[in-house]
Amino acid sequence: MSTDLAPASTRNGTDTKHTSRSAACAGTSRARRTHELGHLPLSIRAPHDEAHAAPRAPKPPSADRSDMKAAPMTTPVPISLTASEQSIAQDFVNGLTIRDIAAARTLSTNTVRGHMYSVRRKLHCPYRCAWHIVIHRILLHVSAVTAPRPDSAAPDLNEAQMQLLQAITEHSRVFQIAIGANLAPGDAHGAIQELVYLFRAQNTADLVTRAYGWRLLQPAEDRPQ
């Protein structure tokens, strides 16, 4: 007797293949998302521990949640922070973690996170943008916070390396940094790591701090108020 239904073994095989394809697609999506977020071992990842994560404020339904980079602030307009925010921002630029700052200032970690969240908000840095952008914005706009001067001479950068450094200060995602630096996406990862190594930095946040310390980037303190 003929039938329109495929044998059970065939149906099971088709289901298995469909499940395998779905799992493969999910794995590819996760890998792509990890690449876009810039989870690099020596550069894009946050320089401090997970306790640095700022509390997530509820967003209105109409808010745009698709952009993970900081809002553009190309003009170095002075930004005012409270005395507590300035002190904590300075500790952060100096490389301390949330727990370190809390212990040194006898504050709770939630209090320190709250101050850093306020700093981010004033600098137009959403909680998902990379920490090297936060440090760049602090040193660019807040003259009361200064970068420590490195104990070695500044590296001699060529035009392409300066362009890459500038792109790092403006973007969180690797492919965006590649576009900003006029690099092929496949070359950006290695170029970022090479620059981190050249600066003797631990990561891109440390790289940006050192760039300001060497005055390769002009901090707010050097500009007329």
Rank of each mutant, 00 (worst) to 15 (best):
T111C: 14
R33W: 07
P155Y: 15
A57T: 01
R45D: 08
A46M: 05
F92S: 02
Q163K: 13
V142K: 13
L139A: 03
G180C: 04
T74H: 15
H132E: 08
V145E: 11
S20W: 11
W131M: 04
S9Y: 10
S118R: 14
G213L: 04
Q166Y: 12
R223D: 06
R99I: 09
T204W: 03
V145R: 11
S84Q: 12
L140I: 01
Q225I: 01
T34F: 06
G213A: 06
L195D: 05
P61H: 09
C125I: 15
Q176A: 11
N203S: 05
V174K: 00
C129A: 15
R33E: 10
M73F: 06
R65M: 13
Y197L: 01
L140A: 11
F175K: 09
A71W: 05
R215S: 14
V77W: 00
G38V: 13
A201S: 13
T82K: 09
C25Y: 09
A178P: 06
I133A: 09
T74D: 14
L165N: 02
Q86T: 12
R56E: 15
C125Q: 11
R65C: 09
L81E: 09
V119I: 15
E159S: 07
M1A: 14
H189C: 00
H115T: 06
A184S: 14
L5R: 14
T209G: 03
P76K: 04
R56W: 11
E194G: 00
W214A: 00
P72R: 15
R128Y: 02
G38W: 11
R149D: 08
T3F: 04
T16A: 09
S9E: 14
R32V: 01
A24C: 08
